[in-house]
Amino acid sequence: MNVIWILFRREFVSYFITPIAYVFIVFFLGLLGAMTFFLGGFFDRGQADLAPFFAFHTWLYLLLIPAISMRLWSEERQTGTIELLLTLPVSATQAVIAKFLAAWAFAAIAVALTFPFWITVNYLGEPDNGIIIAGYVGSLVMVGAYLAIGSCLSSASKNQVIAFVLAVLVSLLFTVAGTPLVLELVSGWAPALVIDVIAGLSFIANFDAISKGVLDLVNLIYFLSVMTLFLFINIILVNLLKAR
């Protein structure tokens, strides 16, 4: 059997042996529900779609995903299991990929458990289900990008709290990059090209584009590139810091 599959399975199962999985899912669904109904005016808008629901994914991921990812490598370094893991016939690359995929699969389950929202809009009206599927696809690739950032920064510190804070900070940069606030900050002095690049780096803008139904390859490739980049740095950091 493939080493990545074995590693993946151990990681994935470990979410469910500890309370992490259940706490996370309850928080995620609870907050998402509360925000969608109270802040997003789900019923008052009189529109059968999931736009307000998807709008809140970004902000929830920003805070909740680092809580899931912080332990990925910090804990291995803290407890010394990293020494066990990386002296088995396993490469750091395989371990990074397997851990990431397990976290992503777990997040996908949490996202899938939001299906009652989808059922509800279909019950209440006649939404464009194509757009909703696009929204889910966008949400999945975006959560992957948040997890890659979190996994990467989890390897930067033995301390899970530090790993969490670093992940929130870097995720925040990527989340708000394209918002008017940030663009105004730089528009006074930065050349137009730089502004375009910064705007293009925004998770919000890229996710919006996907979830409005414009399932543009560019936006998908953007999220996949963020994942690749951070997992690549993750592998380097694991090799560099494993024995510290």
């Binding site: 074995i6 590693l7 151990r10 470990s14 010394g80 299991t81 066990l84 088995l88 016939p89």
Partner: peptide
């Protein structure tokens, strides 16, 4: 190899842990 401090994945059972190691060992 048994590293210093005898690390293992503490949330697992010995059986689960050794099953994981067996898988990695092919």
């Amino acid at each position: 190899y048994m590293p210093e401090g005898a690390p293992s994945y503490h949330e697992m059972t010995p059986l689960g842990f050794l099953g994981f190691i067996a898988g990695i060992r092919g």
